[in-house]
Design a binder for these strands. Structure first.
Lengths: 112, 112
DNA sequence: ACCGCACATGAGTAGTAACGCATATGACTG
DNA sequence: CAGTCATATGCGTTACTACTCATGTGCGGT
């Protein structure tokens, strides 16, 4: 068949991951967690979002197993399930920057 | 301040990229393009989507400079702007699979 | 110039997701 | 065990996005 079609298998799981990462506030939350575990209140302060909103997003991230929650006394600490996620995000950003740089040149060639 | 907070800089561009990739059909389209250039009709056939729908998504991808369009006779050929995108997608999928495998073990430990 | 093919676009609709408000839960303190 | 602090959840609203239908546009052949 078409020689060079990529094996896209089931795109569902991948697209669901992207959907989670597509929300700016969720990205902020993930980044604000960094490599450590932090209580919700820290995330609220770091992101400037409402507590309700942070909890809302944290639930989605938790259900997707991107973050993990554990109680410590009255606090609930959240941390990344897999620290590699940050590395991946970083790599994506680098790709984006390089890509956008290329786009800059491109807009010149665009004449006609 | 908070020692280990990741530099999230502006999450906007990154989240917009993710948003584009979060649509299953858009992912299918990108994968069906593979490393070659293909006319829209090929993509329609490969994905099983309506022509209108494919054009709709291709427009978004084009405006984001993820794909490029060029006319060849009566056809319009689309190709990935940066083939590395496929490599990135592949890497993401591998991460996901490894991650989900870990989750499997995790659900055992979950017993209170 | 007309017609047909490949593709693009505009309008309208339906489904979904984010957010705020109010309230519930769960843990510690007196 | 009443009260308070940290966090979670249900509900209602609003905004966005994918999709379809109908139609427009550009190219090639006759």
């Amino acid at each position: 068949m078409s020689s060079n079609a990529y094996d896209c298998g089931s795109v569902k799981p991948l697209s669901e991951l992207f959907k989670l990462l597509a929300e700016p506030n969720r990205l902020k939350i993930l980044c604000s967690l960094g490599l450590e575990c932090r209580p919700v209140s820290d995330v609220v302060e770091a992101t400037g979002l409402s507590q309700t909103n942070v909890s809302f997003h944290l639930r989605l991230l938790r259900e997707a197993h991107l973050v993990r929650a554990e109680r410590r006394g009255p606090f609930v600490y959240y941390c990344l399930y897999d620290p590699n996620l940050l590395a991946i995000l970083d790599q994506m950003r680098k790709w984006l920057e390089a890509h956008e740089a290329t786009m800059g040149e491109e807009s010149i060639r665009r004449a006609k």
